[in-house]
Structures are given as structure tokens and as C-alpha cells.
């Protein structure tokens, strides 16, 4: 009994040093490349209409929640008002655009959806394998007996002071690490996919519940934007952490698995 228990310890320790499993590595790099392509094409798509709204409707003739001045595409003075409709007179009208806009959506949209296919299929494989194999529960989910706000605060303070323990290039992960990976895998990426699908008129015709869930097409677009900003912030911190905790060993762990 005792011998067995002692033997189990080094085995577990060597497993921890083995780095990442093959399926984790394949999923990681497929998602990484897809995510970068989605960011690149997403910026081009957003630049065509860099205004955000809430609800179902939002356009150059309605007020925006937030306007980001990254292109000159929005020019309130560049609209020629042509007709007012009897429904809510003066409020419901039409106007014609009189200027050319920056628009690369021909390729940007198709590239975005192509990368999204890779992300969605890989994401499904990852979630199913991760949950079935226990990887998600064992390595990603913050453990209930570990979790306390004082420990989280302490972990966050150590990170901010850049007091970082050298990592073995794989699990086990710290509390803050588990929490951020879980938010990315189980909250942000699923939200990106669902809000993305809510922007598809064919998908919302089949699943109108998506429009109710996010409060409309424009709300889904706004959530999509802020989740992508959060994911991009995660990417920056993630890469910085890799660089500061032994980049060579970390990269080897995610490429070769050891």
C-alpha cells in the first residue's frame, strides 16, 4: 500500500513535466492561427461601419452607442434625405449615401467565415475531448477547495509585480491561470461563436431564440466586438507570460509536448 503510494508520486510528477498532450497542441495552434486570421479580417470588417448600437437596428441615420474613429466611413452630412414615411412622421425617413466608403468586405467577410469554420470545428473537438478526458475538470476549472478571493488577490498581486514562478510548460496551472483559461474557453469563445451566428440572417431565421438571447442583431454585434477585445487582451497577456516564464521551454511544451 505504502510502496504503491510512493511510486505514484514520481509518476504524476513526470507526467506533469511531459508538457501538453498531442490533441491539446493541435487544437491550440489551430485555434491560435484561426484567431489571428479572425482578428485581422475582423478589424477590416469593423472598419467598414465602426459604430456600435444596442437592439435590432442601428445605421448611419440613427444614434450610435459608441463610435470609433478608425475610418471616415461615417459622415452624417453626406446623406441626402429623400423621403419621410407616414409612420411616426419625421422620425421614419430615408436618405441616400452620397460618398464612397472604405470597404474590403468582399474578401474580409469570406476570410472571417473560413477561419470561423476552423475555430468552431476545432473548438467542438477540444470541448468534447476536454470534458470527456477530464482535462477541463483536472487542469482548467478552478478547484473549489483552492478558490478564495484572498488567494486570487494574492495570485493577481504576484502577477502584477511580475513575481512569476518558472513553469514546466503545461499543467498544473495556478489559480489565476485556471480562471483566465476557463473564461476564454467556456465563456468568451462560445460567446463569440453565438453572437457571430446571431448576425447571420439564415441562422436566426432557424433559431430566432438567438435574437432574444442577445437582445437583437446590433446587441450581438456589440457583444461580439467587446468579447473580441477581451480575447485580444488575453492574447497579449498570454504571450507576455510565456515570454517571462521560459519561452523556449513553454514553446517546446506546446509544439513537441515535452
Amino acid at each position: 500500500m505504502a510502496v504503491k503510494a510512493i511510486a505514484a508520486v514520481p509518476k504524476a510528477a513526470s507526467a506533469a513535466r511531459e508538457g501538453h498532450r498531442a490533441w491539446v497542441r493541435v487544437c491550440h495552434w489551430t485555434v491560435a492561427v484561426s484567431f489571428l486570421v479572425l482578428c485581422f479580417s475582423g478589424i477590416y470588417i469593423f472598419a467598414v461601419h465602426p459604430r456600435l448600437y444596442w437592439g435590432e437596428v442601428g445605421n448611419s441615420l440613427t444614434p450610435a452607442l459608441l463610435e470609433i474613429p478608425i475610418t471616415a466611413n461615417h459622415r452624417p452630412e453626406g446623406w441626402e434625405r429623400t423621403a419621410t414615411f407616414p409612420i411616426r412622421d419625421g422620425e421614419v425617413f430615408t436618405a441616400s449615401r452620397t460618398y464612397e466608403i472604405f470597404n474590403q468586405n468582399g474578401w474580409a467577410r469570406s476570410l472571417h467565415f473560413l477561419a470561423a469554420w476552423f475555430l468552431v470545428i476545432t473548438g467542438l473537438v477540444y470541448l468534447i475531448t476536454g470534458i470527456a478526458s477530464g482535462h477541463a475538470r483536472r487542469n482548467l476549472a478552478p478547484r473549489a477547495h483552492d478558490f478564495s478571493f484572498s488567494r486570487l488577490w494574492q495570485d493577481a498581486r504576484e502577477h502584477l509585480r511580475l513575481k512569476l514562478a518558472s513553469s514546466g510548460g503545461g499543467p498544473p496551472y495556478g489559480l489565476l491561470q485556471r480562471l483566465s483559461y476557463s473564461v476564454v474557453v467556456f465563456v468568451l469563445l462560445p460567446l463569440m461563436v453565438l453572437t457571430g451566428m446571431t448576425m447571420s440572417p439564415a441562422i436566426t431565421a432557424a433559431f430566432p431564440v438567438l435574437l432574444d438571447l442577445f437582445g437583437g442583431y446590433q446587441s450581438a454585434r456589440t457583444i461580439h466586438f467587446f468579447c473580441s477585445a477581451a480575447l485580444f487582451a488575453f492574447l497579449l497577456v498570454h504571450v507576455a507570460m510565456v515570454l517571462m516564464t521560459g519561452a523556449g521551454r513553454q514553446l517546446r511544451g506546446m509544439i513537441l509536448g515535452r
Binding site: 445605421n59 409612420i87 436618405a95 441616400s96 449615401r97 432557424a206
Partner: peptide
């Protein structure tokens, strides 16, 4: 996707200003 699913239809009060772009 089902071939005959209907896109959501709205109320008169939901009608909004409508931009016209491209050829006008």
C-alpha cells in the same frame, strides 16, 4: 437549416430610418 424557417417579423413601431446605398 430548415428550408422554410421564417425570418423574424417586427411591429409597425419597430420601423426605423432606412439608408439607401449603392445605386440610388
Amino acid at each position: 437549416l430548415p428550408s422554410n424557417s421564417l425570418a423574424r417579423e417586427y411591429e409597425l413601431s419597430d420601423i426605423s430610418p432606412a439608408p439607401a446605398i449603392g445605386t440610388t
